[in-house]
Amino acid sequence: MSTIEPIRKDVQHPAQVKKYSASLRLWHWANTIVISGSLITVLINSTLTDDHSTSSFMKDELNKAGATVTADQAKSVAHALSDKTWDVHIYFGYALAALLLFRLILEFFQLADQKFIRKLKSAWYQFQTTKQNREAARHELTVKAIYSVFYLLVFIMVATGLFLAFEDALAAFKSIRHTVKSIHGFCMYLILAFIAAHLAGVFLAERKESKGIVSDMINGGGQ
């Protein structure tokens, strides 16, 4: 489990705590809210507003109340309710796309020592050249590699999500809709796995030598 624990100290300067810009911290917490909201809408639509279970429930309850409702009518209402939930999911998708664009632009304007690409290259260089603190360098490189996969997954989620959201305008590519939807759903599970690993890593880090890493992402670190 130690492999997934984020490191609070700067690998190049072990005496210093990593710094996080206000823009990066804003992106981090906004991203947390948007991804959580998106996943919650998926959970709701697969449970509370599932077409089959919801239509049966509506039909039974309305019949008990004295109304005459057919199975098709109940299914139509349930489907409309499900569509409303998916509309919210789509809005979260737009927000995620905007945050991804913001993160890409931010990478160009971050201070040099806070750029993700530079940190990734630095971790690789440290791992390749350093003799001292080699374990820390390997650990930092592993964590940065996992974050790189996360960014790639978010990009795929956004790209496939936008395709599905604008599928009417992309009718010429209708033949690949099922494949795109499958990729979108599969990436969701991978992101869930990343979230679980990230939370576990942060929890473990807070209990060890990286205590304070959560507050660093709130106050900026470097203290």
Rank of each mutant, 00 (worst) to 15 (best):
A71C: 12
T54Q: 09
D50P: 08
T47D: 04
M58T: 09
S36M: 01
A22L: 14
A67K: 12
Q73R: 06
Y20K: 08
T32P: 05
L26T: 11
K59I: 05
V42R: 04
Q73A: 07
R25S: 03
T49G: 05
V34A: 04
A30R: 02
L48N: 08
A74W: 01
S36F: 00
A22I: 13
V34R: 02
Q73V: 05
K19P: 03
A71V: 12
N31V: 06
A65K: 10
G66L: 11
D72T: 15
I33F: 06
S36Y: 02
T68Y: 09
S23A: 15
D72Y: 02
T47Q: 10
S21C: 14
S56A: 13
L24F: 13
F57W: 14
T70Q: 08
N45C: 09
E61L: 14
A30N: 11
L62S: 02
S56K: 14
S76V: 10
H28W: 07
V42A: 08
A65N: 11
L48A: 10
K18Q: 13
V34F: 09
I44W: 01
M58Q: 06
T68L: 09
I44K: 02
K19Q: 10
W27H: 11
L39N: 02
I35D: 00
S76Y: 07
R25D: 01
L62T: 03
E61P: 13
K59A: 06
N63I: 12
E61N: 15
E61K: 15
